[in-house]
Structures are given as structure tokens and as C-alpha cells.
Amino acid sequence: MKKILFALIVLGTLTGLVHAQTKVQVLSTQELVTTCKLPASPESRSFCVGYTTAIYDTYLATRHPQRAKPYICVKQPAPSRDEVVADFVTFAQTNQQTSDKPAAGVFLGFLASRFPCARK
């Protein structure tokens, strides 16, 4: 029994090392811009809206209001998703230095500049 347990631990450790060395590909800003450019196919539009909405939803869900002041404040009525995505595409195209950066971080930076919170 001890030999089987030891073998499972060794196997699990080796598997973990292999996975730890695997490079995780993240979506670049350029890849997101290419997908989000208009006119977009229904599939591209769905991916673009879903991806950007997930980024914003993750920001909302993970920001602790007592420990981290908000830096993205969307006033109501909010602009349409298509309008925000089109503005992001323009933003990314005018800031070419962000093209190879992870799309999620650049999109959050765009949202912070597009929807800044009021200074108190």
C-alpha cells in the first residue's frame, strides 16, 4: 500500500512539474482588436462581447470595496456594448505599444480611462 501511495505522489509531482513548465498563452491586445473590429461576424462579435464583459465582470467581482477604491465607474445610462468595444478598438490602435500586452489588462486600463471615477 505504501509503495502505491509513494508511486502516486511521485507521479503527481512529475505531472505538476510538466504543467508548471507549460506556457499559458494569453490573448494579446492585437488579437482581441482583430476579433473585435467591425464589421464582425456573429461569432467574432459574440466572442468579443463575451470576453470584454467577462473582464469587466471579473473586475467587479474581485474588487473588495473596503480595501480597494474603484477605478472604473460606469455612469448610467451606460453606452452600448458595441460603442464601448468600438472605442476600445480605436484606443488600442492609437496605442500600438500595447498590441503585444495581455488584452485583459489593456482593456481594464481602457475602461479606467474611459470611465474614470469622480475624485473626492
Rank of each mutant, 00 (worst) to 15 (best):
T90S: 08
S99A: 08
D57R: 13
Q93R: 10
A68H: 11
P79G: 04
T13W: 13
V49L: 13
R63E: 12
P77T: 03
Q25G: 07
Q21Y: 11
Q93W: 02
S46R: 14
T62K: 15
A86G: 01
T62C: 06
L108S: 06
V84C: 02
Q96L: 03
L5T: 08
T13Y: 10
K69L: 10
V49D: 10
L14F: 13
F88A: 00
H19F: 11
L5E: 14
G16K: 10
F6T: 09
G50W: 04
P79M: 05
F6M: 12
Q93N: 10
F107I: 00
F107G: 01
E43L: 09
D100R: 11
T53I: 04
T90A: 09
P70Y: 15
C73T: 10
Q30S: 04
A40M: 06
T58F: 06
A104G: 13
K37V: 00
S80C: 01
A54Y: 08
V85H: 02
T90G: 03
Q97P: 03
I72K: 01
A78G: 07
L8Y: 08
Q97N: 06
G105M: 06
Q96M: 00
A7H: 09
N95E: 03
Q76C: 03
I72E: 04
C73E: 09
S113L: 11
A92F: 00
T13C: 13
A118Q: 08
I9L: 14
T29I: 03
L11W: 09
D82I: 05
Q93M: 06
D82H: 06
Q66V: 11
T13G: 15
F47Y: 14
R45A: 14
A104D: 10
F115T: 02
R45H: 12
Q76G: 03
D82T: 00
Q96F: 07
L108G: 08
A103T: 09
L108M: 10
F110S: 00
Q30H: 00
T29D: 02
Q66Y: 13
R45G: 07
K23F: 13
L111C: 08
I9K: 09
Q21L: 04
A61I: 05
T52Y: 03
Q66G: 11
S113D: 12
G109Y: 09
L60N: 11
A68P: 03
H19W: 13
V84W: 07
Y51S: 02
K3G: 05
T34E: 02
T34V: 01
V33G: 04
A40W: 06
V18H: 15
L32N: 02
V26C: 06
F6I: 07
F6G: 05
V85T: 03
Q76T: 10
C73F: 11
Q76R: 15
V18S: 14
Q21D: 05
K69I: 07
T94N: 08
G105L: 07
D82Y: 04
K37R: 12
L38Y: 07
S28M: 04
L32T: 02
F107N: 03
T58L: 08
V74R: 11
C73K: 04
T62Y: 06
S113A: 14
Q30L: 01
V106N: 04
K2A: 05
K3C: 02
V33F: 02
R114V: 00
V18N: 13
Y71I: 08
L17N: 12
T34Q: 01
P70Q: 15
I72W: 07
S99D: 05
P77D: 09
Q25S: 13
